[in-house]
């Protein structure tokens, strides 16, 4: 299961990372070197393992539908890159890009 240059470009795209073209071959090599060490996991017999998720023995606690909102001790304007009329601003997208991406 070797990682290819296209794989790296694809996952960089998913992760919204713009990679320097010249760095890609090195990253391909590094990821492959790391993943090679992971192959040992394929040999492990995990048939007896059921329901693997997390380590806590904790059941999910529920919160009552009330209470004071958690305070923000600093105004949004103080930490946001761009705010206008109370909105966070980002470079504009065309409307048709919206719905397509909205996961829902």
């Amino acid at each position: 299961m070797a990682v290819t240059q296209e794989d790296v470009e694809h996952i960089a795209n998913l992760a919204r990372l713009a990679l320097d073209e010249r760095r890609i071959p090195e990253l391909v090599q590094q990821l492959n070197a790391i993943l090679e060490h992971m192959d040992v996991l394929q040999q492990v017999d995990t048939r007896k393992v059921i329901g693997a998720s997390g380590v806590g023995d904790q059941a999910l606690p529920l919160r009552e539908d009330k209470g004071v909102p958690l305070p923000l001790h600093r105004a949004r304007e103080l930490f946001a890159p761009e705010v206008r009329d109370g909105f966070f601003l980002v470079p504009r997208l065309a409307t048709h890009e919206t719905v397509a991406e909205e996961g829902g």
Partner: peptide, 18 residues
């Protein structure tokens, strides 16, 4: 780069993210 921290301008929204 939307709500806090560093924002570096790029080509459109996607460019800004990257």
């Amino acid at each position: 780069g939307v709500r806090y921290g560093l924002r570096v301008a790029g080509d459109g929204l996607r460019g800004m993210y990257e």
